[in-house]
Design a protein around this nucleic acid. Sequence first.
DNA 1: CCCGTGTGTTAGCGGTCGTTAACTCGATGG
DNA 2: CCATCGAGTTAACGACCGCTAACACACGGG
Lengths: 209, 209
Amino acid sequence: MSPTKAVENRREQILREAARLFAERGFHGVGVDEIGAAVGISGPGLYRHFTGKDAMLAELLVGISGRLLAAGRMRVAETPDPAEALDALIRGHIDFAIDDRPLITLHDRELDRLRETDRKLVRQLQRQYVEEWVAVVRRVHPHATELEARAAVHAVFGLLNSTPHLGSQSGLPERSATAALLQRLALSALAALDGETALDSGDDRRVTY
Amino acid sequence: MSPTKAVENRREQILREAARLFAERGFHGVGVDEIGAAVGISGPGLYRHFTGKDAMLAELLVGISGRLLAAGRMRVAETPDPAEALDALIRGHIDFAIDDRPLITLHDRELDRLRETDRKLVRQLQRQYVEEWVAVVRRVHPHATELEARAAVHAVFGLLNSTPHLGSQSGLPERSATAALLQRLALSALAALDGETALDSGDDRRVTY
DNA sequence: CCCGTGTGTTAGCGGTCGTTAACTCGATGG
DNA sequence: CCATCGAGTTAACGACCGCTAACACACGGG
């Protein structure tokens, strides 16, 4: 094998443990010694693999954002029917939320700890991902305004990203059961966009457009 | 007025600014000098009002947890109809999520930074609040299992607590419009609990119970 | 055989942070 | 008029943290 293979494994191992620790105790709450100890080396040995603690967080956030966007775009591209595409988007996001819980947590929690260039990149990836969702949601629910759809997408992200809270206290038994329930909840929430009221006017509820 | 009044105001001012800073940059990311500067005094002057930085966070988290629980219990107690009680619970939570955004953020983000005694208290308050919701949800959606209802409640919390993400980029125009949309999304999400599949068995989807 | 390279170690530096100590000062009340 | 007290100041200390420096050592190829 190529000599970079072992290095890659080490890097990935470090990133995995760093993600877990950052999610548990916050970026500033974890010392480099603890990250090193989690992978069996100690402290400054990490600097053979990363230029610094910031670089680890940056690689984690850029990675998860990019993978979310790539997976979302792929699923949308290969699913012509909008309703099925929305289903696929939700299912894909649930996979990330369940399998990469620490990353999902970091992704909307420690973004401000990045240097500005990295932060702008991550934000751009996140924005494109949201746009992907908004476009599909508006095709499935044409009555929704742009603002409504965008807010609803953020709300559904909050719903789907609630998985970290489920594991803490007794949680659901099976992964597939959790995924199925979240899928139904998210789809059903978005179905509210076909309801009555619009919100561009400050008026009270109205039934017709 | 009593001499404690000015003290209370100062304390509340400090707590408000501390909550904002903690939510923005994380508990470990904010120094006591910054908190002091935010209220016009500097650094160690805070120790005339709090025994330490930890005490500020503890008071914030116990406060929001307690107020959420108290408000929820009151609304449930004075609303006999379960569907209306659920509506009131959602509306009350939205009020907190919109008006006390930093506290809602801290509430599920910095809990682990508390000393164990405070952490246990906050967790107990949170658990009781969840139980209040679960009881009402199960009365409105009797087909849902305990586990389903609990997971759905956590998911709806995630949905409602997404407000901090809305304000960051363009957000919704009016407070009442945002509140109304979140209300519809949350109610509609929970309506999925009346759907087909159960999840206590590991089998595939079934239509009957 | 040995030398370069990858990967680790320990010691230590410079800076930051939470907290305490010692002091100041205006207001208040007998 | 002075003693007390609440509320703030600055200085400084000890601990911790991210990171660098200097060194160790296995190993693979000429």
